[in-house]
Nucleic acid binder design. Structure first.
Lengths: 88, 88
DNA sequence: TTATATTTGTCCGTATGTATG
DNA sequence: ACATACATACGGACAAATATA
């Protein structure tokens, strides 16, 4: 029951990115919390890993998340913060 | 089984365009859905690719479809709509 | 130390579809 | 009808760092 429409003019990776943004905005994904891993997104949306990576890359470029190599990708805080965070 | 008449005074690309318009109007091709690719039209109507491209171009100019670079050509919506679009 | 699992990083190749010459 | 280029999407593979056992 993927929410992904492969026939849409909107690229699949953009659709996934939009869904994640929605979860960030509605609070399902909190600041400094990990978002689902690439392989998790791959399974959840039934897409190739490259597509999941592309979605995350897009979110990164738009400032929604930041990625820590070999650790994961976390929801970015747009507001000033005094703590490092991103540990778990 | 091509519905194309090469002897007709109507250019082949216009005939193809008309057939696609008919499919849009009878609902076979829905709004925001992809229309057949250029190569698909090429095979289906047994014409050169340039001819297929020309048909699509004609449809675009008449507002029946819109093309998203590197993605495909889609049936346009003539009515005002607050498209979900999947954000930005 | 070793082993395993997870996660991101980085390559390879293939296919489709459009854009252009 | 040909070739090239680019964006998107899929599939696979291996490496490196991290975490746990």
């Amino acid at each position: 029951m993927s929410e992904i429409d492969h026939e849409s003019p909107t690229p699949v990776y953009r659709q996934i990115a939009a869904l994640i943004v929605a979860e960030i905005e509605n609070g399902a994904l909190e600041v400094n919390r990990k978002i689902p891993s690439e392989s998790a997104l791959t399974q959840r949306f039934g897409v190739a890993r490259e597509t999941a990576r592309n979605a995350v890359k897009h979110l990164r470029e738009e400032g929604w998340v930041f990625t820590v190599p070999q650790r994961g990708t976390y929801v970015a805080d747009r507001k000033p913060s005094n703590e490092s965070a991103a540990d778990e």
